[in-house]
Nucleic acid binder design. Structure first.
Length: 280
DNA sequence: GCGCCATGTATAG
DNA sequence: TATACCTGGCGCA
């Protein structure tokens, strides 16, 4: 269940494990069998990520375009020298086997063999990616400052900001003390810049530790003498999935409400309603 | 063992 | 707005 940091981590790990040498490409499940047969035995040039998209580059401007969706996973298993790859478990749509590792793709919403044109079209449709040094946050700002949609929705729009998902959305708005319901038109440039700078830092950190950690040093379990968070996500967060629990900063109960068909989480006190503050 | 939900998106209606 | 995708972790029996 990936946000942009997961895909960048995956691209780095896949490149390290397979790039530069021929790979066996297969589709044990069968749904990618014809394409896999075309690529089987070819050299994997590199794996790259953009937003939540992943591209496996093969010679001749051919790319495997992968999107994990909500439940997809691409697992990399190291192989000892001469070790056989294990039998596939479950519905493996795509399997890569190299000398040093085997990687299995399951549950992805997208797995297709495409050309450079299609790849460029996907890239062109993506907004500013905080993980890319060449990202253009000013272009995202133009979209945001002229939109009546809420900042909580805008951050999830991949055509505006690429790679941010439900966890980073909730956490960055908490860290910036911004009401998720504020329309884009109500934000000031400096507030957007602060969101962007924070995302750049948080997501780069997410790639390093392969986890979403957003809690500042002064609010860690050790610093506050509180229980560490224990769940399948692992990372320490302020509001994500903490409905009803006390905010680490002010003690108010964390709230949740659907926004853009996803559960939004926020602290009603730290992220005070912008309308109330704007009263003349 | 079963049902539910979830870091997401595309497509049908 | 609803549903397909079809995995994995959790709570509960």
């Amino acid at each position: 269940m990936p946000e942009g940091h997961t895909l960048r981590r995956l691209a780095l790990d896949l490149t390290a494990a397979f790039a530069g040498e021929p790979v066996r490409v297969g589709s044990p499940q069968g749904r990618f069998a014809a394409e896999a047969a075309d690529l089987d035995g070819e050299v994997l040039v590199a794996a790259e990520s953009a937003g939540k998209h992943l591209f496996l580059a093969f010679p001749g401007e051919r790319f495997v375009h992968i999107h994990l969706g909500l439940i997809g996973a691409f697992d990399i298993l190291p192989l000892a020298a001469g070790e056989e790859a294990p039998a596939p478990r479950g519905a493996v749509r795509l399997r890569l086997v190299g000398r040093r590792a085997v990687a299995d793709l399951r549950g992805a919403t997208q797995c297709a063999l495409i050309g450079a044109e299609r790849r460029d079209a996907v890239l062109a449709g993506l907004g500013a990616d905080p993980l890319r040094p060449d990202a253009d946050p000013d272009r995202a700002w133009e979209r945001i400052r002229t939109s009546k949609r809420s900042i909580g929705e805008l951050l999830m729009d991949q055509a505006i900001v690429a790679g941010v998902g439900n966890v980073y959305r909730a956490e960055v708005l908490f860290r910036q003390r911004l009401d998720p319901f504020r329309p884009g038109t109500s934000l000031r440039k400096g507030q957007w810049q602060a969101i962007w700078d924070d995302l750049v830092e948080l997501m780069a950190d997410g790639v390093r530790v392969n986890r979403i950690d957003t809690v500042r040093p002064e609010h860690t379990p050790e610093a506050m003498g509180r229980e560490a968070r224990v769940d399948d996500h692992g990372g320490e967060v302020y509001v994500y999935r903490r409905t009803g629990q006390p905010c680490f900063v002010c003690g108010a109960a964390v709230r949740t409400e659907p926004m853009a068909s996803r559960n939004l989480f926020w602290c009603p006190r730290c992220q005070r309603r912008w309308r109330l503050r704007a009263v003349r």
